[in-house]
Design a protein around this nucleic acid. Structure first.
Lengths: 194, 194, 194, 194
DNA sequence: GATGAATGAGCTTTCATTCAT
DNA sequence: TATGAATGAAAGCTCATTCAT
C-alpha cells in the first residue's frame, strides 16, 4: 500500500473520530458538515474529498463503532472463561459503548431515516451480527443448563433494551459507578435467563 | 370559561392530534410545520396562533401523550386486582403506548435537544411521575413479599428499557401478536422482580 | 377562481418574465435563483413559494415562450392569406422569437441536460407541435402545387436551422433591419421549397 | 525545439483530445476539470500545468477543432474538381464535423459567455476565416455563373445554419445515412444558391 | 512535472418564523 | 382568527483553483 493511501486512511479516520464525537453530542441530524470540519480546523468542502456526502460519513461512523464493538464482543466470546463470566464481560462492553459512544453506537435511531437502501442493508446486517453474538452466549448457557429460557430471542431483546436504556439516565457522577452498574445489571440479566 | 376559550382549546387539541400523528411517522426533527398544518387543511402561519413555536408544539405533544399515559396507569394502579394483575395491566398499557405512539411517547429521545429549560423541567417532572407509578407497584409487591429486589429503581429502569426497546423491532404482522408479546414480557418482568 | 389564486398566477408570471429575461441573458445554467429573485426585489427563498425548484422554473420558462410562439403560429396558420403570405408571417414570427427570446425559446440547447424525464416528454411534445405547424404550411403549399419538395421534413429542418442560426450573428444595429432580414430569408425559403 | 517542449506539446494534445471528448458529451459548462483529468488517469491539479485555467482549455479545444476543420476545407478548396464538386465536399466535411464533434465544433454556443476578450477576438477571427472559405466557393460559383444569389453572405449564413442544425436531430441509426443526408443537403444548398 | 490535499466562493434547497391584511 | 406571502439563516454540495511537496 502506498504512503498516500495510508495517509488517506489515517485522515479518514481522524474525520471519523471527529464526526463520531459531534454526532454523540448533537445526534445524526444535528451534526453539520461544518461542525465536523471545524473541529479538525478544516473547511466543509474538504470533507467531500474523503466522503461522498453526509449520509456516507454518518453511515461510516455508525459502521465503525458498531464493527469495533462487534469485534470486542467476538474476542470475548472466543476467549477464556465460563459462560457466566463471558456474559458479564459482554454486558460490561455493551454498556460501555452505550454510554460512551451514545449516538453513534445508537442502535435506537431509526436507520431508515438516515441511510439509503444500500447502506441500510449493511447496517442491518451488522446489527444482526452484533445481536447474534448475544444469542450465541445465551444458547451456550442453555446447552450447559445454566440458563433456561423459553424465548431466547425475546430474552435477548429484553436484555439489549435494558442495557441501551441506560444511556437515558446514566450520569458519570451519579450514585453508582459504571462498574457497580455493570455488576447489578449482570445479576438482573442472569435472573432473566434463569 | 367563555365559548371562545373552549373553541381555542378544542382547536389546540385538533392540532395536537395531527402533530402527534406526524411526529410518530417522521420524528421530531423530521416533522415540519407545513406537514402538520397540511393534515388539518390549515396553513403554516395559523399554527402560530395556537402555539408559540415549533418547540412549544412538540413539547405539548410529548406532554399530552405522556400525561394521558400517566392517567391511564394511575387509573389501573388505583383500580381493582392483585398486584401482579395490576402490573400486567400496566405493562400492557405501556407497551401499547410505546408501539402505537412511538415517537411522541418516545422516552428515548434526548429532551435537551428539543426543549428549552422551562419545558425541560416540566417534561422531566412528568417523566418522574410516570416512572413513579411503576415504582409504586413494585414497592407494593415488595411489601406483599411477592417481589424481592434489592435495587428497585434499577429494576424499574431495566423494565422500562426492555419495554421501550420493543418499538425498535416490533412489526404488527410479526410472529407474535401484541397480546402474546405482553404475556411473555410480563413473565420476564416478574422474573426480574423475583 | 379566487382572488388569491389570481394573484398567485400573476406573481408566477412576473417571476416567469423575470426569469425569461435573465435566462436570455445568461443561459439556463448561468441564471441563478438569486439573479431571478433580485430583479423582482425578492429573496431567493420566496421563489420556492411559487416554483418547486429551479428545474421546474426553467422548464416553465421554456414552456411559456414555446407555447406562446406556437399559439402565434397557429393563429397565423388558421388566418387569412395565401399560403405564401402565411409562410412569410410564420417566418417573421419565428425569427422574432429567435432573436428576442434567444435562450428561452432556444430550440438549440439540449433539453436532456436541464429537464427531468417528465418535463422532457412535454418539452419534446411541444417542440413537435411547433415544428408540425411548419410542416402543415409546407404540405399545404405542395398540395397547391406552389411548392415541390421531395423531402418535406428535411426541408423543414433546413428552414428551421437556417432561421435559428440568425441569433448567432444578428445584431440589432447591423446593416439590415429585422424586417429586411425577414424579407430576404423568406425569399430563400421559397427557393428551398421550390 | 527541445525534447521537453515537444513532450509538452504532445501532452497538451492528449489533454485536448480527452477534453474534446468530454465536452462533446457534456457541453462546455457540464465538463469538469475532474472529468477531463480522469479520462487520462491524471489529477485535476496536473491540468493546470498545461493550461492556465478551464477557460483556456476550453478555448483551445474549440480552437483546435475549428482550425482543423478550416484546414480540411482549405485543402478541398485548393484541390481539384468543379465548383459544385468542391462545394459538395465542403458540405460533407462540415456536416461530418457538426455531427462528430458536436459541442466542441459547436459554433452555436455564445462564445462571449465562456471566453475572455483576448480569446474571443481569436475565436471570432477563426470563425471568420472558416466562414470565409464558404464565401469563397460561393463567389467562385457566382463568377462562373453557376450560382446567382443576391445576398451571398446571408445565403452562406442560411447554409451554415441549416447544416449546424443537423446535430439537433441526427441519429446515427436513423432513416438516412450520413451520406444520403449530405446528398440531400447538397441539393437543397444548390437550390439556395441558384 | 505531477499530485494530493485543501480551499472558498457560489449554488440550490429547506423551513421556522413573521406580519400585514 | 386565519392566511398568503415573504424572509433569512442555515444546510448540503460542487468545482475551479492553488500550492507545498
Amino acid at each position: 500500500m502506498k504512503l498516500s493511501q495510508r495517509k488517506m486512511i489515517r485522515k479518514k479516520q481522524q474525520i471519523l473520530f471527529s464526526a463520531i464525537g459531534i454526532v454523540n453530542k448533537k445526534g445524526y441530524a444535528g451534526a453539520t458538515m461544518e461542525d465536523i470540519a471545524a473541529e479538525l480546523l478544516m473547511t466543509k468542502g474538504s470533507l467531500y474529498y474523503y466522503f461522498k456526502n453526509k449520509s456516507d460519513l454518518m453511515y461510516q461512523c455508525h459502521n465503525f463503532v458498531l464493527s469495533q464493538a462487534s469485534e470486542d464482543l467476538e474476542r470475548i466470546l472466543n476467549g477464556e472463561g465460563s459462560t457466566k463470566e463471558i456474559l458479564f464481560k459482554m454486558v460490561a462492553t455493551h454498556i460501555d459503548y452505550a454510554i460512551e459512544e451514545k449516538e453513534t453506537f445508537n442502535l435506537i435511531m431509526e436507520p431508515k431515516r438516515f441511510f439509503n437502501e444500500e447502506q441500510l442493508k449493511l447496517v442491518l446486517e451488522l446489527r444482526k451480527r452484533y445481536e447474534g453474538l448475544f444469542d450465541q452466549i445465551i444458547s451456550r448457557g442453555i446447552q450447559e443448563r445454566i440458563f433456561s429460557t423459553e424465548e431466547p430471542t425475546i430474552a435477548r431483546m429484553i436484555i439489549l433494551g435494558a442495557m441501551n436504556w441506560i444511556q437515558q439516565w446514566y450520569k458519570p457522577k451519579g450514585r453508582l459507578s459504571k462498574e457497580e452498574l455493570v455488576e447489578i445489571y449482570s445479576d438482573y440479566i442472569i435472573k432473566i435467563l434463569k
